[in-house]
Design a protein around this nucleic acid. Structure first.
Lengths: 264, 264
DNA sequence: ACCTGAACACCGTTCAAGT
DNA sequence: ACCTGAACACCGTTCAAGT
């Protein structure tokens, strides 16, 4: 029974206290999130789960944000990348890929929120980026266009997931919706004629269709909009880029990378 | 000097303790945020500023989220709505309006973050929504298209602002960027050929131009993409909506409001 | 009826002191 | 050299008890 010699009956009925490693910490964090939600994945709670003090975690993880980023990357392993190498139109396959990404994040909106602030850089995230770029390239997007388009697409997916409220907050979310509905009902036709006219259309849910339409809009726009270089910052010229976007869009859509608008 | 009779020299050199009102609380919260950042606008810190205990605030404000929402709406009063009634192409004016929105949020990214979760419903927010809808209507967008487009545009602006790190976090943000750069440098051409090929293009900053291009993409897409009703959820058909978006786009752009896609 | 002191149940992060 | 107990400096929210 001395601290040095293990007692005869300690034939590891329970792993007792496995050595701390970064991988082990992250794995436990993922488990904890699955069981209790990201809001419970705190340094203190996690340390408790690992039978140690919170200070010990700081040997392996810089801070809470980094921990959450690691958890996120782990989760991104679940994204279905198969559309990249499947048959069919690149737009549809890209939409399927991104929908899978959003579905994974939907399970943990708080994680999506953190992804919006601290850009991830894990292995699984890179696989996702690679996949999106491959499909954009297949669609003929020139490098810069693809890089910027990637940002737009992932940001849209991430933000959409982030907007979804966690179960815990759903009571508040419902209050939000009620408040907005009340405001819309009371909207004055004088001050807010457009809002009054649209009415309930403004909060028409149909989340799935909305998400799909958003991807369509982005894909059309990414292929169609004028070349990044020629787009002036808003607030400059009054007629710059006016109809050029969709005007030349039809042509450019056929061969986006051969567009001539690099020269204004 | 008795508690009841005011002492002669108390000719309100300091307002002592103004009665609590919701408006007063929110005004103080805005001041506090301007002075110390949103992260300091906590119930406890705010109560201290108002010379009372945190419990007192709960008489006027449901919780911290609602407080932050009220602060946000106050801030949105600074958005420049003049592009709605100015001359020029509706796209450029809409871009200017949204750029102003983003500029206001850029000052307080944490507030943008909260806007992403709890959708605002204050007066100033409604004014902004009304303005965006008016410009979309001017561009000939049909009601449903306008409603969905509104969401896309505001979400893009909000998310872009939310991504910007607060001063306090800028050290972390820089580390993020360094980490990402390191990852890109080490990216293997085998596993991530697209990423390796694009290289530094992926993190090319030029925030202003990127934002402007994003608005262009969205506006092109909103006008151009197939009708919301006809957009199938991703993962369904393989050829649905393939080229229809930009294909019919050129026509639709000339007279978007006379488009016949209400009837499939 | 209206307001609030004090308590409950938590946080992240650091650092001096241990092994 | 590596690890961590204990402390510092905070949080949001509730509710019983006061005026």
């Amino acid at each position: 029974m001395t601290p040095h010699s293990p007692s005869p009956r300690s034939r590891r009925e329970r792993p007792a206290k496995p050595a701390l490693t970064r991988a082990g910490i992250v794995a436990t964090a993922v488990e904890l999130m699955r069981a209790e939600g990201l809001e419970r994945v705190t340094m203190r709670r996690l340390a408790q789960e690992l039978d140690t003090g919170p200070a010990s975690l700081y040997v392996y993880v810089r801070n809470t944000a980094e921990l959450h980023a690691a958890v996120l990357d782990e989760l991104l392993g679940e994204v279905d990348l198969s559309p990249v190498r499947s048959a069919g139109d690149w737009r549809d396959r890209l939409a399927r890929l991104l929908t899978s990404y959003v579905e994974v994040l939907f399970e943990h909106p708080a994680l999506a929120r953190s992804a919006l602030v601290a850009r991830p850089s894990g292995e699984h995230y890179l696989d996702l980026v690679e996949a999106v770029l491959a499909l954009l390239a297949e669609g003929g997007a020139a490098p810069e266009r693809a890089a910027w388009g990637l940002d737009l697409l992932l940001q849209y997916g991430t933000a959409t997931a982030a907007e979804h409220s966690t179960r815990a907050e759903s009571a508040d979310a419902q209050r939000d919706r009620e408040a907005l509905t009340a405001v819309l009902d009371n909207s004055s036709p004088d001050r807010h004629p457009q809002i009054t006219a649209l009415g309930p259309d403004l909060i028409a849910g149909a989340g799935e269709a909305r998400l799909a339409w958003g991807f369509q809009v982005l894909l059309s726009g990414i292929v169609t909009a004028p070349d990044p270089d020629t787009t002036p910052a808003a607030g400059t010229g009054a007629d710059a880029g006016t109809g050029a976007g969709a005007g030349a869009g039809a042509d450019k859509n056929s061969a986006p990378d051969t567009a001539t608008d690099t020269t204004p």
